[in-house]
């Protein structure tokens, strides 16, 4: 219940902004909602989880408020492996890149964390969609995340999307099981089909997660999995 409130707060703010277009300069206000990943994962060791990764935005060409949310719910234990919400302001800094800054709140099962965050998001040459973020947590630990995605058009409706997400910690945060160094890598390959224009695109794919270095050691100490491979089935949604 507490978590629901935490999620709904940013939505409320976003909706509030939309309801008062007068706040924002002269430009038109646009909004959008996208769930890049909304999937069921079945792991090689029988893991079953639900995963989402999406964002909603409202704003002008010059300034957008964006709410990013992702999480992984272990369906067997009914616990949240990860649960992140970010609220950032985003503004263009070049033809193809935006800068963003804001806050992030992690509320998985277990220890919560607040972060301050800055980052960039945009389109790199050769059509790589790139998100690069820096975080500083309430405990003073720094970390970074790089997220790269490529949409390969097999046809104009059938799209193969490889993705890579890497977390790097600049210091240990034992409490949440993070060790200094490259802490986590997630590789994905999803094959989607645009069923209802770009609004509904079901997909299947595979994902592989691996904890690395000290983080992996911490996981072993806690008797947790250090890596897992999943078959995923889901739907990309856009509105």
């Amino acid at each position: 219940m507490k978590k629901l409130n935490l999620i709904s707060a940013p939505v409320g703010i976003a909706l509030g902004l939309m309801a008062f277009p007068a706040i924002a300069m002269e430009g038109n206000i646009f909004y959008g909602l996208q769930l890049e990943q909304f999937e069921y994962r079945y792991g090689d060791e029988g893991e079953k989880s639900a995963v989402w990764d999406g964002d909603a935005f409202a704003g002008t060409d010059e300034l957008k408020l964006r709410w990013q949310s992702n999480g992984e719910q272990d369906l067997r234990e009914d616990s949240f492996e990860t649960l992140e919400n970010r609220l950032v302001l985003q503004t263009p800094i070049s033809d193809f890149f935006d800068a963003k800054a804001g806050v992030r709140l992690d509320t998985p099962t277990g220890q919560d964390r607040w972060y301050g965050t800055v980052g960039i998001a945009g389109l790199a040459p050769q059509w790589f969609e790139v998100d690069a973020d820096l975080f500083v947590s309430e405990t003073g630990d720094g970390s970074a995340r790089l997220d790269i995605e490529f949409e390969g058009l097999l046809t104009n409706h059938l799209i193969l999307t490889p993705s890579l997400e890497t977390d790097i910690a600049f210091s240990d945060d034992r409490e949440i099981g993070i060790g200094q160094g490259v802490s986590k890598v997630e590789l994905g390959l999803r094959l989607s089909y645009d069923l209802i224009d770009r609004a509904v695109s079901p997909y299947i794919g595979v994902a592989h997660e691996r904890k690395l270095g000290k983080t992996a050691d911490f996981a072993r100490d806690e008797d947790e999995d250090r890596d897992a491979t999943y078959v995923v089935i889901g739907m990309r949604l856009m509105y």
Binding site: F30, G32, Q34, D61, G152, L153, L154, T155, N156, M238
Partner: peptide, 20 residues
């Protein structure tokens, strides 16, 4: 349409170059 184009400029472009 305007909103979709702002969200994704090639939202309506189904003539893009593909693997084919």
């Amino acid at each position: 349409i305007m909103r979709n184009l702002k969200m994704m400029p090639d939202y309506y472009n189904r003539q893009q170059r593909t693997l084919g």
